[in-house]
Amino acid sequence: MSWRKPYLVGHQEFAALYRVDPTMISQWLAPSRRVLDPSTAIVVSGVRYWPLGFAARFGATTKRFRQVDFDAKSRIIAEQGAGWEADLGDELPPLLGQQEIIEMFHLPSQGTLATTIATGRFPASDWLLSGSMLWMLDTVLMAVPALRESARSLPWDVDEAVVTALRDGTYVGPGSRVFTRGRHARKAV
């Protein structure tokens, strides 16, 4: 791929930027705390991710100033390779996790995708954030011919409606929402 990917952070990377436990990010998101607005994140496979630019300036926007750890930021950038620092979710290309990929190809199960990834037939993920693999939509679409060629029985047909929804930011299928857990679950919209 000739273009660079944006730097992203998940809960663990966000926490590393401020030298806090990853569970603190969930506390900052809690309706009772309202420190971190959930709408600042993008949701991929039911998990929130943030552009690194937003995450790095977040500490200066809170009532209680939090200093970003520039060494942690440098490590995140080094781990992700060549890229650029996006600030808003609107600046990001369409991103996929396993749930969106399963929906896009109408795969029979998560195990089918997991096996394809484990055997090296699926393209390498663009990110590994907080233990989860993420891909840019174009990374996956460019791999379709190779997926079809290596497949024994799956057609690897792309659902163009899902692709269009992902590109337009209107995707509402599996993985498009974070399901609230804990004491706030009943209060969730």
Rank of each mutant, 00 (worst) to 15 (best):
M1Y: 11
S2M: 13
S2W: 10
S2V: 12
W3A: 15
K5R: 15
P6N: 07
P6Y: 01
V9Q: 01
V9C: 08
G10F: 00
Q12Y: 07
F14L: 14
R19D: 14
V20L: 05
V20I: 13
M24W: 03
I25W: 00
P31L: 13
P31D: 14
S32Y: 12
L36E: 02
L36G: 01
P38E: 06
T40S: 11
T40V: 09
I42F: 05
I42V: 15
V44T: 07
S45I: 08
S45Y: 02
G46K: 00
V47Q: 12
V47S: 10
R48L: 06
Y49M: 05
W50Y: 13
P51Q: 06
P51F: 02
F54T: 01
A55S: 09
A56N: 00
F58H: 07
G59A: 10
A60V: 11
T62N: 02
K63D: 14
K63E: 12
F65H: 13
F65R: 12
Q67W: 04
Q67N: 09
D69Q: 03
F70C: 07
F70E: 14
D71E: 14
D71Q: 08
I76Q: 00
I77K: 10
E79T: 06
Q80W: 02
G81T: 09
G81I: 12
G81S: 08
G81K: 03
G83H: 00
G83C: 11
W84I: 05
A86T: 08
D87I: 08
D87M: 10
L88V: 09
L88R: 14
L88I: 05
D90R: 09
L92G: 05
L95T: 02
G97I: 04
Q98W: 02
Q98P: 08
Q98K: 11
Q99Y: 05
Q99L: 15
I101M: 09
I102D: 01
M104N: 04
F105I: 08
L107Y: 04
P108R: 07
P108T: 09
P108N: 13
S109N: 10
G111A: 08
T112Q: 07
A114D: 11
I117H: 00
A118S: 14
T119C: 06
R121V: 10
P123K: 02
P123I: 05
S125R: 02
D126I: 04
W127I: 05
L128E: 13
S130D: 09
S132Y: 07
S132I: 05
M136V: 07
L137Y: 03
D138M: 09
T139G: 06
T139E: 11
L141N: 04
M142H: 13
A146L: 13
L147N: 02
L147V: 11
L147R: 02
R148I: 08
E149R: 11
E149Y: 06
E149A: 11
S150M: 12
L154M: 12
P155D: 14
P155T: 14
V158A: 05
D159K: 06
E160P: 03
A161R: 12
A161P: 03
V162G: 01
V162C: 05
V162P: 02
V162D: 03
V163T: 15
A165I: 06
A165T: 03
L166M: 06
Y171R: 00
Y171W: 06
V172S: 15
V172C: 10
G173F: 00
P174T: 08
G175M: 01
S176T: 06
S176A: 15
V178Q: 07
V178T: 11
G182V: 07
G182T: 13
H184T: 13
A185K: 13
A188T: 04
V189P: 12
